[in-house]
Nucleic acid binder design. Structure first.
Lengths: 255, 255
DNA sequence: CGGTCAGTTGAACCTGATCAAGTCAGGTGG
DNA sequence: CCACCTGACTTGATCAGGTTCAACTGACCG
């Protein structure tokens, strides 16, 4: 154990220490998303739930395929991606993890993580040893229920990710992605946000080549549905973009 | 409530009664898959876990998108499919449920089922009210852990389903599907099995049109990788089929 | 100031969709 | 028992969306 992560963690643990051993969930802006808000103050010892926090740099792996499952990871800051290291090519991006999300949940089934997790931007995550979480859950029904919801939500996400791949055209996939990303980014659907993933990462997630994503984005810009400058992006016509994403297919009118 | 399912359930409940109120998990061949084998005999009242059993006919819905979440469903016999009733087209098949699988787990998150479940063949399912399961889980750690594994496994499946859609060619998708299906059908990977889903259902799951699936199957037959007669199918060349599914892409040799 | 990495743009090609007949098995009713 | 109907599947010809290959631009970083 620790063979791969030792060098990374050294700095991270130091950072956690430097932050003043602040491992309580109480002040966390994501309380209520990661963990149920009502339960934390009352039950058990919420400040012992998170064993440590890690600081990750862009590109840095949090988890690799096949790693032993011991903990789940709450995203405090930044953006992560799940990666299925398919035998072929450079890994399929299975999804993105935003602040408040829990990563690594798919590792429970086999005690190993089937997918890896990497930082898309610099990020900070809370390490939550799963046995602690389970123990807490069995004592506090609200926590148990919350955990079940989180697990179930992840299942639902998987299903929703299938739809674009199976049914939508390139333009629809990109439009759909932008809408979802905007909504998740600032869980309220701000029209103005940073598109942190590269075109390649987006493409990988959408089953498209980077070139195609580039072309579609260019096209959306020329249609005045979005504005773009480097990585920052603004949705100009929410409704039109949505209509495009959900169109029966083919041209916007026709038939 | 009951409006849709009343007529269906009447027969089903009668059938359950006729079966002698046999709602215990003890004699079930899938004990240890649905529920943890060790825990059942010892803990609580396993025979009160399943509230009833339902008999479903081919095509009959077990669950529709938007239905209230109250229970999960253990498959005892037959094949079911999960369906995402996309706004467009006739519903995307998100996956298949084999005997021993638990369906409906994605409903926990929002108290409503985001996907529907239908019988692909005549089937029998155990209705497991979720509050009973949760209560049992919080008393018995082994059950809790098992439930978490089941939920997690479902997450992993979702990820695995993305790969074919995002990366593989039509032939690879079909080959991959046949291998998985064979393995799941008779959890040991028999080379001889019944392909219960229609080509359309397979296509929907794989992001392909029925015509394409038909062509690929014909091609696999002509390559002597499989044999087919009506719905029954035999894998003749396991290794070659696997190689085909995992090929970098393009032709089997080349480059 | 060269090097690299992310993105852009163009042209040719290919896979799977689409449209359109047609086959075949099973079920139904006469 | 046969005629008919329906739903599942097959097969062919054409078409188009997205990939591929390739060259090029432009930031950013030492």
């Amino acid at each position: 154990m620790g063979t791969r992560s030792a060098p990374l963690n050294a700095a991270a643990v130091a950072a956690a220490r430097a932050a003043g051993e602040g491992l309580s969930c109480l002040g966390c802006p994501h309380l209520g998303v990661c963990m149920p808000a009502q339960a934390v103050p009352r039950t058990g010892r919420p400040d012992r739930l998170v064993s440590r926090r890690l600081l990750l740099q862009r590109r840095e792996p949090l988890l690799s395929t096949g790693d032993r499952f011991t903990a789940v990871y709450g995203v405090r800051r930044g953006l992560l991606k799940g990666v299925l290291a398919a035998d072929v090519a450079g890994g399929l991006v299975t999804g993105f993890f935003f602040p408040g999300d829990l990563a690594g949940l798919d590792g429970i089934a086999r005690d190993r993580h089937p997918t890896g997790v990497l930082a898309v931007t610099d990020a900070e995550v809370c390490v939550i040893p799963f046995d602690r979480l389970e123990a807490w859950a069995s004592r506090a029904p609200a926590v148990q229920r919350h955990l079940h919801r989180l697990l179930s939500r992840e299942i639902g996400r998987g299903c929703m990710a299938l739809l674009p791949l199976a049914r939508l055209t390139a333009a629809q996939r990109v439009a759909d992605f932008l809408l979802r990303f905007a909504a998740a980014q600032s869980h309220g659907s701000a029209s103005d946000f940073v598109l942190a993933p590269t075109l390649e990462e987006m493409g990988s997630h959408l089953g498209l080549k980077m070139e195609t994503v580039s072309r579609v984005l260019a096209q959306l810009v020329s249609q005045r549905l979005i504005a773009r400058e480097r990585r920052s992006l603004r949705i100009l016509e929410f409704a039109d973009l949505d209509r495009l994403a959900r169109a029966q297919s083919a041209g916007p009118e026709a038939r």
